[in-house]
Design a protein around this nucleic acid. Sequence first.
DNA 1: CCGAGGTATCGACGAACGTCGATAGATGTG
DNA 2: CACATCTATCGACGTTCGTCGATACCTCGG
Lengths: 132, 132
Amino acid sequence: MVARAEPIALIEAPAQCCVPIAADDMSPDDAASTAALFKALGDPHRVRVVNLLATTREAVCICDLTDFLGLAQPTVSHHMRKLVDAGLLAREQRGVWAYYSLRPDAVRRLGEVLRFADGPFGHGRFEEGEGR
Amino acid sequence: MVARAEPIALIEAPAQCCVPIAADDMSPDDAASTAALFKALGDPHRVRVVNLLATTREAVCICDLTDFLGLAQPTVSHHMRKLVDAGLLAREQRGVWAYYSLRPDAVRRLGEVLRFADGPFGHGRFEEGEGR
DNA sequence: CCGAGGTATCGACGAACGTCGATAGATGTG
DNA sequence: CACATCTATCGACGTTCGTCGATACCTCGG
């Protein structure tokens, strides 16, 4: 029996992501982990799942998601893993069923990454005068 | 000659994106356009560019970005187009040079997509509640 | 302890993506 | 005008991604 991928039970949520997009000391690694989070939300089906969990505000059985998304069961499992790996969802086993729920703080934190201080930015047009 | 891709000058920023992640009436199309925005930020190099523009708060010449990113010139051009197509960046031609700048409102709006009302989220099972 | 049913992983496939060299288009200069 | 330079597009390549059928894993009920 060949070695398989890590069992999903061992998957841990990543550290408190992320550095603000306007941070003046963002490292390439910071950018990579930030991009990884956004990539998790870069699929329409995964956005729909997050939306469902955000409105439901309850854990949802993955067995209901195949109909909701109109995808095959392995595909749904694949998407859920992406979201759990990103730390945006939590997984809970209830008997035979797997329930997924949103991690509101993780979602909020990711949103705050895009919030930067107001400043000489809102002028709407390009600044004038720098040549070179 | 053969029909080429649309000239970049005609690219227009998309409509006011997007529906909040907690919207109870999010359509699959809404999810698709939201996912497209996040996908634009799903690449480390593009995150670095947005970070640079957010800290610089000025338009930046694409000629400086090849060194900044360590990528070939066509690759940089490719990434910038993705960001402009997503509506996150603006492009301005200054003589021979192409300057790109951030669209702060677009970035902020995307961040607000992930902001949903506080509520009975942290109660019960799953950790990380902190509902507040 | 065995069978039934829900779920994750495997393996494969086509599509999309990131990358670059070559090249075409655009703009300023002699 | 001819030329040099900057940038976008083209075409190609290898990698990653989304998808699904088959299958292994896991939990429960008999």
